[in-house]
């Protein structure tokens, strides 16, 4: 079975200043899978996601993409790995000096070697997919938070990623803007894009996720299908945690 994993993460550890933040996290992602990372703040979700593509170099552990081990010592290998792993950040990280179109286009030219015309065509297609073709010429500062996050999805998709990592893609957004981003993510899930997403949108996640991974203190303490973990009468930490969140946000009912 594990031979089919698109992404396999083995025993990642990471410490900051002697403080262990990830204590040996492993997971596997299969074609079409959406796995959702949940858990209390500071549990290590962002650190894990950034360790996977070595934006934060892990202290130990292995990462395999389609069965091939990432060798971070090879810059070539690392870059091509990152190219194939799309990343969505909580705070978007659009390139502030580039228009929406150029944000999507810039890496197509620089990393994938597209000609300008090819890159433009592809970038417009991705912007259209996220419903922003009319905003191509806008600069990040002229876009709403939801639009920025959709551009950043388009930017990642333009690289033809095999996997996407999403770190709380909606938590920097005003409530009324969350829906438009979730819709884009839902489309991706329907199309079968393998994804790992950290989120506090439990209701939304439960409706799409194949598996919940509950992370606390640098370990995955619990995992299982959302239905099982959230079932009435379940003693799971996931259920307790979700109840606490929904108390605060009234979001459970979805």
């Amino acid at each position: 079975m594990s031979d089919f994993a698109v992404l396999r993460v083995e025993h990642i550890t990471k410490a900051f200043g002697g403080q262990p933040i990830l204590k040996g996290v492993s997971l596997e992602l299969f074609p079409g899978n959406l796995k959702v990372l949940i858990g209390p703040s500071g549990g290590g979700k962002s650190t894990l996601l950034q360790c996977i593509n070595h934006l934060i170099p892990p202290d130990s552990g292995q990462v395999y993409l389609e069965g091939e081990r990432l060798n971070p010592a090879s810059k070539q290998n690392l870059r091509s790995f990152r190219r194939q792993v799309g990343m969505i950040f909580q705070d978007f990280n659009l390139f502030e000096h580039l228009s929406a179109l150029d944000n999507v286009r810039v890496a197509l030219g620089l990393v994938r070697g597209f000609s300008k015309a090819q890159a433009t065509e592809r970038a417009m297609a991705e912007l259209t997919r996220v419903g922003l073709q009319s905003r191509a010429g806008h600069y990040p500062a002229q876009l709403s938070g939801g639009q920025k996050q959709r551009v950043s999805v388009a930017r990642a998709l333009a690289m033809d990623p095999k996997v996407m990592l999403l770190d709380e893609p909606t938590s920097a957004l005003d409530p009324e803007l969350i829906g438009e981003v979730l819709a884009v993510i839902r489309d991706l899930a329907t199309l079968g894009m393998p994804m790992i997403m950290a989120t506090h949108q439990i209701g939304f996640a439960a409706s799409l996720a194949d598996e919940f991974l509950f992370m606390d203190h640098g370990v995955i303490v619990e995992h299982g299908s959302p239905a099982d973990l959230l079932a009435k009468g379940s003693e799971s930490r996931t259920r307790a945690f979700s109840a606490k969140i929904s108390e605060l946000t009234c979001e459970m009912g979805e």
């Binding site: 870059r79 990152r82 190219r83 194939q84 705070d91 990280n93 390139f95 890496a107 990642a156 690289m159």
Partner: peptide, 13 residues
């Protein structure tokens, strides 16, 4: 913001 460099690296630059 440090995210600018991260986002660029994440795209494979």
């Amino acid at each position: 913001p440090s995210g600018q460099l991260k986002a660029a690296l994440a795209l494979g630059m």
